[in-house]
Nucleic acid binder design. Structure first.
Lengths: 347, 347
DNA sequence: GAAACCATATAAAACGTTTTACTCAATGCC
DNA sequence: GGCATTGAGTAAAACGTTTTATATGGTTTC
């Protein structure tokens, strides 16, 4: 049976209050403090988080929730991306002596199970980081706003207040990719994108197209192939592309590294050399990019920073709510960077 | 301000006790129940987990802790493996309406910060799943045993009680790999293993060697190259191997997929065809295996099942401790399986 | 018609902390 | 020496639940 503060107080021969003060570094005589500390050690006393949480009305816990869709099959593709983000958030949270509650949950269950309401009203977390994947409705935002609950959503969608948004400039990522390909002399570029309703797909596409327009490069809608962010999807897209003899691409831009790996596999199978015949550029800079041959040129997203900054922002929001300190907010927008490796070459 | 049970009771015009009973499906008149439920809905009442936890002396939370080493650099290689395990555990935990506390922590901090003691005595979790990576000392096990704290450790190490162990038959994995290579006619096999003190390395090695011995294949210690589970490590190992002209391998067994991907890159660079000249087999069946070209033959570990079973076991241990029910235990040992793809061929 | 039982409802205790308000003695100041 | 100030300590209230023991009124049983 774990010992309580009362046990410590009795053993040390002081009151509960004094014991509490000594352990929390509040006012106390040096002698009594030692007595109390000795007693605590002897009894292996550790503060009950539950008891403390109740009285302080804080759980010292941050929740991070990745929002899946039940319909979308279990994509291992999400792994690298979200694990990195999680580790970033975790690092920040541990630094601040908070506890981490990580979960992956379906949109459907989110509503059925009243997930958000339970977390908010159940007082089991002090703030939350939301990581949506698809552009569903954000009904739960009303609840969070109404309750002034500290939250951050990793999504640059219009309508989210800057203080609650931490995200990546997907526009810039798309822009960077096409800029680099154009600088290498490519004009015939196929864009293998993610699903049309995916959160990141459309903005990457806009950035990509904008840069093409700037160089007055003709671009046909059918040069964009919508896929599903998987290796197999990338593979199939290239097969489809090769079957269409009206297309003569010299470069491929894939909206993530998994699809790029699939694309490369399909090209190799068809005897097309990368980057000899066709250059390929990926997106995300996950492990895949380093591990395939040739090593993939890609757009890096600092997912770990993304997670870290999101956690930091949530902690700030909590501080502000508690009146501990006052932080000013602006929107956090991470710029992606170009990582040049071996899968692209000058025309 | 979130409403409390008291608010609900007042609005419904009943006592605190009655309100509690109604909400928890205990004895109650149907009319009063409706009144209470209506009041709860109107006030958006949700039970305070903290209040409940305090009185029930349960947190309904399971912790899962991946044990890193500060000395080992931040290996992204851990990602796929542990994220999968985590998702398995999470699935089981959510099914049972528990909360999930996931953290990655260094051995060093584990001791410095009294991590385990805080979790145990702080009563913030009801049970824990430990995922060590290296064979350090398991000093904390004493504490867990002494306090009869429900835990599971994902490690088949000798000395851990069967009820607390969930793990993979690494011996069998190594055995399977060499068995398959031998069946293809290979005799000259280089084994690129993980670090010597890594938890999984030595058992895989034993399995691998055992099978060779069964076929009376001569094996020299220098045919084992110890590396670090990274892509770069695998790459460097092959460079080293190629520099040693006394070696004439026809096959390579790599202790994980990352090293296999590095090995393949080095072979390709040297103009050696895979599997034409040298067959390569990996381990883990992570995303990498499917994404590289040629697709990697590998040993699959059902990491998700591993996590799920570990969580299930912890929940059982908690049940038993609480006297809710009685489960019998035996050691859980998952068998790895061989996944044949395109990186191996008959000699 | 008393005794026993039941369904329903409640008051009060309990969980382990922190914090507020208060006491008491010692010190410093004029 | 009187008065304010400080330091060290404590009792009691508070947080939001669940649970135990008890009360009330109504119904059944003999």
């Amino acid at each position: 049976m774990a010992s309580t503060l009362k046990d410590v107080a009795i053993l040390a021969g002081v009151s509960l209050t004094t014991a509490s003060h000594c352990l929390n570094g509040k006012r106390a005589n040096e002698q009594t403090r030692e007595k109390v500390l000795a007693a605590a050690k002897k009894l292996k006393y550790h503060t009950s988080t539950i008891g403390r949480n109740l009285i302080t009305n804080k759980s010292n816990t941050i929740g991070m929730y990745v929002l899946n869709s039940r319909n979308s099959r279990d994509m291992t593709e999400e792994i690298t991306y979200y694990y990195g983000m999680m580790k970033g958030a975790l690092a920040c949270i541990q630094e601040h002596d908070y506890v981490f509650n990580f979960e992956v949950i379906n949109w459907e269950e989110l509503e059925e199970k009243n997930f958000i309401a339970k977390k908010v009203y159940g007082r089991s977390i002090d703030g939350m980081i939301l990581v949506p994947q698809f552009m569903y409705h954000y009904g739960f935002l009303n609840l969070l706003e109404e309750e002034k609950f500290p939250y951050v959503i990793i999504d640059p969608k219009f309508g989210i207040k800057p203080e609650n948004s931490v995200s990546v400039e997907n526009f810039k990522g798309g822009y960077l990719a096409s800029d680099y390909l154009i600088s290498l002399g490519h004009k015939q570029i196929i864009f293998i994108n993610g699903p049309e309703n995916h959160i990141d797909s459309s903005t990457r596409e806009q950035g990509f197209l904008t840069r093409l327009l700037e160089s007055s490069i003709q671009y046909d809608r059918k040069q964009i192939i919508y896929s599903d962010f998987t290796h197999e999807g990338g593979y199939a897209s290239v097969k489809k592309m090769l079957a269409d003899h009206s297309l003569h691409p010299t470069a491929l831009f894939c909206a993530n590294d998994y699809m790029a790996s699939g694309a490369i596999a399909a090209l190799m199978e068809a005897g097309i050399r990368v980057p000899g015949d066709i250059s390929v550029i990926g997106y995300d800079d996950t492990d895949i990019a380093r591990c395939i041959y040739p090593k993939l040129t890609t757009i890096r997203i600092a997912v770990k920073d993304l997670g870290f900054l999101a956690a930091e922002r949530v902690l700030n929001l909590i501080d502000n709510k508690m009146g501990v300190s006052h932080h000013e907010y602006s929107e956090i927008l991470l710029a992606p960077t170009l990582v040049i490796r071996d899968s692209t070459r000058k025309l």
